[in-house]
Each structure stands twice: as C-alpha cells, then as structure tokens.
Measured scan of single mutants.
Amino acid sequence: HEITLHINGRRVKLRFRDEKAAEILKEAAKKGLDEEELKKLAEELWR
C-alpha cells in the first residue's frame, strides 16, 4: 500500500504494509515529523 502525505507543502509518498502502519504514519505527520523521519519510520514499520 502507499499513502501520500502533505508535509511542509510537499507531497511525500510512503509505503506501508497495513492499516495500523498507515495510522502510525498519519499520527507522526500530525506531530510534526519531517520527511526524513517519516521515511525512516515507514521503513521500520515495513519490517
């Protein structure tokens, strides 16, 4: 699955395995994680 989040006016595509991962990524984006941090988090969730 993929999700596209808008971060600092940019579109960031993240891959994720399940809905739980999608929710975690959305929450992290709301908390203000930047693009690099979100990509790292997405990679961690993928494993």
Rank of each mutant, 00 (worst) to 15 (best):
G32A: 05
L45V: 03
R10I: 12
H6A: 07
R17I: 10
A21F: 05
E35V: 14
E43N: 08
E2A: 06
I24N: 04
A22S: 07
R10D: 04
A22T: 04
A29D: 02
H6L: 15
E36L: 11
R11H: 15
E43S: 08
V12W: 02
L41F: 06
E37C: 14
H6T: 15
L41T: 02
W46Y: 06
T4L: 09
N8D: 07
K30G: 10
K20A: 12
V12R: 01
E43F: 08
K30H: 10
K31N: 15
K13Y: 06
L41Q: 01
K31P: 01
L5D: 00
L25N: 00
W46L: 04
T4K: 03
A29Q: 07
A28D: 01
G32N: 06
R11V: 15
G32C: 06
E35Y: 11
R17G: 04
T4P: 01
W46E: 03
G9S: 03
R10S: 09
R47A: 14
K30N: 13
E2L: 12
V12Y: 04
R47N: 15
H1M: 13
L45G: 01
E43R: 09
K26F: 10
A29S: 06
L25V: 06
T4D: 06
K20G: 09
L33Y: 14
E44K: 11
E2T: 14
E35P: 09
A29V: 12
L5N: 00
A42I: 04
K30P: 01
D34A: 11
L38I: 14
F16M: 05
E23M: 13
W46T: 02
G9D: 05
R47V: 15
L33E: 06
I3F: 07
K31T: 10
K20C: 06
R10Q: 12
I24A: 09
I24W: 05
I7R: 02
I7E: 01
L45D: 01
T4G: 02
E36S: 11
A21C: 04
E27V: 08
H6E: 15
K20I: 10
E27F: 05
L33M: 15
W46Q: 02
K39S: 08
K13L: 08
K39H: 11
D34I: 09
A21M: 07
E2K: 06
H1A: 11
E27M: 10
K40N: 12
H6I: 15
E35F: 11
D18Q: 05
L38K: 00
L25Q: 00
